[in-house]
Amino acid sequence: MKDMSRATFLKLAGTALAITVVVSLVMVNIDWMGMDGSTEKGPIVTMLNVTIVLSTLVFSVVMVMMVYAIWKYRAKPGDESDGEPIHGNTKLEIIWTAIPTIIVVGLGIYSTIVLNDIEAEASNQMEVDVTAQQFAWRFDYPEQGVTSNELHVPSGTQLELHLNALDVLHSFWVPEWSIKRDLVPGSDQPAGDNIDDVVRVTPDVEGTYSVICTELCGWGHATMRAAAVVESQEEFDAWAADQEKIPEGSVSTGAAGGKGAGVYNDQVAK
């Protein structure tokens, strides 16, 4: 860097910027996260795009510096001399400590704002109690008094999902909605008071999706799926009227809790 002229520096910086612009323009126009099917997903996708631009900038700067150094300072065959005895440059070192600090603290603040945004409670909520066990899902609707193996949602209503598992850890995810949370066995027990077992998501595009288990739960993990149907309020009401009632006296969560081994055994035996 000792002999690097201002012109060379500007050329390298310009190359890195040009690469960043071109690559970013291509990358932000790809739907990396698939369809956007919930009001919470929009801010996450925006955040991804911001991160892609910053990441491309960092990566291009590093690559341009490295490729330039290899091209410029490669030793000729037979050259056994040493490089310049430069031990460091305090100003440069302060710069490359300070700039990343500013970037990551900025990203941290941005993340916190987005997190509060996507976890905000809406005025129109509907509670659904989600119960997972190896390898099936159950959805209870306490307001409608019905139960189902499919998740049905009126479009635009914020779901307040109360999560519980009966045997091992599972995780609730609909990729199109982005929001994900583990279902923890024992979250309905006294010892589970500190478990954050409520998660909110507002699907807003009608269609049929899949609830995917994303926490390893045994041999049937890959196929632990349930349908998630987003529909109009009328369709939802008609569907709810048709469903089985939640049996009298049944506790929607944790009724079959017990040693994980027992359930595991049963499943292995089948």
């Binding site: 860097m1 150094a69 300072y73 030793a75 490089g83 310049e84 460091g88 440059n89 440069l92």
Partner: peptide, 10 residues
């Protein structure tokens, strides 16, 4: 990267 500058890269 700084080490690579003004070096004799092999």
């Amino acid at each position: 990267l700084g080490t690579l500058f003004d070096s004799k890269l092999h």
